[in-house]
Structure formats: C-alpha cells, structure tokens
Design a protein around this nucleic acid. Structure first.
Lengths: 232, 232
DNA sequence: TCAAAAGTGTTAATCCTACACCCATGC
DNA sequence: GCATGGGTGTAGGATTAACACTTTTGA
C-alpha cells in the first residue's frame, strides 16, 4: 500500500482549463483563447492557467475567468482530470478542467478584458491545440446530460426570457429541434416558470410582442439538487 | 495566457485511488485497504498508490488492482480529481480517482493477494481516512446514475444469471426495491437479454430452479455507448 | 396587406404503476 | 405437506408524439 511520499513524487505541474458556455438568446458560444507565447504561439486553446502551489484549483479557474471577463461570480463544475502522458514535453502536466455556464449579455460579449480571448459559436470552434478538443468534447457531452436532467436555463438565460428563447437554448445544447407545443406543455407542467405581467418590447425588432417568464427560483434550486427528468 | 512552465511549477504529487464495486449475486461490496505504514497506520482507505512519472494514471490504477486481486482486465472510468489543498501536509497531492465494476466470484472474494485488502458491504463501509469518504460517496452517486442510464449488469453479473439476481443488483445499487413483474417487463422489453435453455441447478440450495439469462452483447455495447433510459 | 414570429388543442399510442396468487422443488 | 423462492397478467391513469392553423404586430 504505497501512499506515502518522497521528495521525488512531487513532479507534476497542475493547470486548469475552463469550457465556458455562453448563451445570448440565439446561439451557444464558447470562450476560446489565443496562445500568445511560444510554443504554439497563435494556436487556439481553452482559457487555461497554471495553478500555483497553495491555490485551490477551482479558485484558480475562477480567477482566470475574472481576469478575462471582468465578471467574478462563476458557477463551475469539475469536468475531469486530463493527464495524458504526452501532454507536455516539459514533464507531466495534469489539467483539471472545469465547465461553466453564463448568460452572454452584450457587455460580456463585447468587452472581454483580454484581447486574446473571444467567443466562438459552439459548433463552429476551430481545432484547438494540446488535447483541448478532447476536453471541449467532454464538456459538450456534460452539457447535454445536464440539460436533460437539470433546469440549467437559470445560468444561461437573462432574468426574464421568452419560451422561444428557452426552447432555442435546449435545441442548441442538444443539437435537435422540438415541437413547440409539446415543449411548452412539458416545461409549463414543471411549474418551474413564473409567467410575468410583461411582454417583450416589440420596438426592437419587427415582431409581435412575446410573453416573458422568469424562473421560480425556489423550485428551481430543489430540482437542481435532486435532478429530474426532462428527457427530450 | 499563462500556460507555459517553469521548473517550480512541477510541484504536485499524483496518486490514484479506485472505488471497485463488486457484486456477488446478493450484495454490492467495495474493496477497502488498510494502511500499513505511518502516518495513520491502521486506518482504512481506498486502494491507492502513487503514480510514478512516465506512467499513465489509468494504467497505474489498473496495476494497483492487478497486484491486489490477481485479476488484470479492468474496466475503469475516471471519477474526478480530488485536489483539496489540505489533502497532505507534505505538499499538494492530486488524487485522480477511478471507479470500477467487477463480478465478485468466489475466487476474487476469498483470494485477495494482499492481506491488507478486504471487501466490505457497500452500505457498511467504516469511515475512511483522508478524503476517501468523499471519493466513495462520489462513486456511489456515479454508480446510481450509471445504473439508471446504462446496462451495467454485464460487468457485475456472472455470464449466466437469473432475473432475480439482476433485480437484486438494481435494488442494491439504487437503494430501493422494485415490483418484480414491472421490473421483468421492463428489462425484457429492452431485448438486452437472451433467455437460455438452462435453469439453475436446484441441488445447491433448497430452491425451485430458476431461468437463466445472458446479455445480448451486441445490443449491450450499442446501449452502453449511446446511453439509454432505464429510469426506475 | 404582407412578412415574421407568437401562440394554441386534440388524438392515438405507449408506458407506468399498483396489485395477489399459483407453482415447483427439496426437505 | 410445507416452507422457500420462482414465476405470472390486467386495468386505469399518465405521458408522449405527431400534427397545422390563427394571431399580432410593424413596416
């Protein structure tokens, strides 16, 4: 039972990458970084940083996101550790990757603090360096599962949203489309939504105003914890 | 974008722990180790070993299991990385934990190669040292999810088994009980099982002989990949 | 008045749940 | 013949999937 340590056992570097899904009401996007220094300068990668000794991994990931976006309350969930041997020639690198969700409002969309980061349409992300494609794929699968079992809209939609936006989110995340009537019936039956006394402002686009909803936060939290079946 | 490395970044030790669920036809059991050296000599922990430089983590986990059990084909799945800062006073220790499933036949049950390992009933595992209780709980949750979405019986049951054994497995894993008729209907409808021309040998116990089944392996693989809904 | 998106019900098929008794065997 | 576990069917309610037209608005 070999679990005690020698000096030489402390040989691994620890990094963290994040896959952030943002939804702007129409499309799912992913935050991507461009590598600025060698090796692989110019290559696209997931936002990534080295985890310094004494810093909790999730905290490092959150700080990374704060630095890049200016926003500093992040819900993150660990994806997995990626520790392929050939990850880096300098030695073993363990990447503990996270997945996060965010409402992609105009501010976030246009004002990334670091100019080497950008939002890419989720199903149009160019190939990434290292094994980040694998991490991204893993995150996409996680998102699909989460969407099916938990009411994730809360993290991805603005406070007030329409049923069409919600449906569009589910369709983006799962990559298929649903019958509008069935979708509405199902989502309304859950009583997760509160119908507001408001409609969208029709002035913005050439549109009929649309009923707004918000989440019933109490019920929402219960369901997020317990999980449920929202299988489409 | 800080992703390149300095000497001082390689500061973490890497270990792997495994949560192995074994099913013997009646009960779910978990493989537990007793720590033989200081610190915490005598404490119970999950089977664990330090991952040496140049060894893939999953391979290290498999080797650990081979050494302990003598069996060397293991299906493992990564659980998560556990990297709490206070995990070990010697420095940061990252534990990449795995979960595995095994048919617990008499040989495995009685002939663990190392005498500091033992099988404990799954819901009767004493408190473990370090953060291994947390890892175990994580594994139990994973098992529940897997049971619901994938036909995991293949890994846990003998080649030929009865429907009652299968039901018993589902009941152990999910911690609740099911109606026999409904269970059978559901599992047979999936066409995942092949009814054999055989019954259990009634001589062994004081029992009526019982119909034996095996898995339809082809269909089984398809479902394992795609996932499905076997929600009870 | 037209284009664009919002909104709305019904039906048939399927699936789920609850429920209780007879059967084959070894002792 | 009895104790033990093995095996079986039905009915009512709930859930799902498929389906197309009308409404409101701004231009």
């Amino acid at each position: 039972m070999q679990v005690d340590f020698q000096e030489s056992d402390f040989h691994a570097a620890l990094v963290t990458s994040v896959v952030v899904f943002g939804f702007d009401g129409d499309d799912l996007k992913i935050l991507v970084a461009e590598k600025k220094n060698e090796p692989f300068s110019g290559a696209l990668i997931l936002p990534t940083r080295v985890v310094q000794p004494g810093v909790a991994v999730e905290l490092a990931a959150k700080e990374l996101l704060s630095t890049v976006t200016g926003k500093d309350d992040w819900y993150l969930e660990q994806l997995n550790a990626f520790a392929r041997l050939y990850r880096n020639p300098a030695g073993r690198v363990v990447n503990i990757a996270y997945y996060g969700l965010v409402k992609l409002d105009d501010q976030l969309k246009t004002s990334l603090r670091k100019d080497d980061h950008a939002w890419y349409a989720s199903d149009d992300v160019p190939p990434l360096a290292y094994d980040h494609d694998e991490i991204l794929e893993f995150a996409r699968e996680r998102l699909k599962r989460r969407v099916k079992r938990r009411p994730i809209g809360f993290s991805l939609l603005p406070r007030e949203f329409t049923l069409n936006q919600l449906q569009s989110l589910y369709e983006c995340a799962l990559g298929k489309s649903f019958d509008k009537r069935n979708f509405r019936r199902k989502i309304l039956k859950s009583e997760l939504l509160i119908e507001l006394e408001k409609k969208t402002d029709p002035t913005s686009d050439v549109k009929k105003p649309s009923q707004l909803y918000m989440f019933n936060e109490k019920k929402y939290r219960k369901m997020t914890l317990k999980g449920y079946d929202f299988v489409f």
